[in-house]
Amino acid sequence: MVTTPGGGKDTLVQIRDLSVTYHTRLGPLSAVSGVSFDIRRGEILGLVGESGCGKSTLGRALMRMVAPPAEISQGQLLFDGEDIMAYDGEKMRDFRGRRVSMIFQDPLTSLNPVQRVDEHVVEAIQVHEPQTTIRVALNRARTLIQTLGIRANRLRDYPHQLSGGMRQRVMAGLGLVLNADLIVADEATTSLDVIVEAKLLDEFKRLRDEFNLTILLITHNIALVAQIADRIAVMYAGQMAEVGDVVTVFDDPCHPYTEGLLRSVPNVKLNEREVLYKMGGEPPNLTHPPMGCRFHPRCPMAMPICSAEEPALLPVVGDVEHLVHCWLHQPQTRGAEAQA
């Protein structure tokens, strides 16, 4: 059961009750389980979580690119008001790249090694807009690359001749060339060093400001999210744990998992005698997730009801934009009140 403020012209993507199931030999594995949230136009939404929490799968599910043996077992995906689950193959193909595009983690393997940069871009244009002549397409490619800070003479290079940062910008460029509404950046900066990463993020911000892009930033790096995201969504074990404005959530995390995450981030100004905080326990086996709240085995504040029933993703009292999936913040709990 879900109640979220939704609809309205500024909501780009509405995800309701989405589940993605992997059919493994050991049984079905629910990688994403009943996830619901919105992505608003022009925002940078950071999607964070541990490895294996399902955030990448969720990102792909947005584009209906979950590959067998996985499938979207239930849920509704509304993009700009349209139900993309109902799209057929051809419509979906057109949708990808033109309305949503993805930037991948490893730009070296994500680019075709025997294809030049300009060929990548021109191809993307011509596939979606077949009437475009090569000259026009090349011009667009040139302009775009330059916008991203790459010199035009690199257009004829092959991917292996570019640096990591440049490659990622090319990937970004491929994402932008068709004026997509939403960019899903799946660990886009993970393989880059911090300085290049910072530059790239600045780039993203600029693009968002200039073109009103919407960016879904999938990452396990919370600091990143703190830096540029508007809102943050925290996933755990295939479920959405907490969603909200980034400042609010950082200042005042509601879900124990979010709290633990924030405390785990090493502080640059770490004192010699301070010990790194580690969250106890392991993420659960998703073929046999725990009963009730999936976090309860590791939760320092678990209550009896947590192991019995699943909570719902509900707004925190007093802040309709801040959602949390936790019995601590929901009625029907007999425990102590949540910290305000």
Partner: peptide, 14 residues
């Protein structure tokens, strides 16, 4: 199964 194929598919290449 290479990444660039997935990336290409994500761009809507047939």
């Amino acid at each position: 199964q290479a990444d660039y194929i997935t990336a290409g598919r994500a761009r809507g290449l047939p």
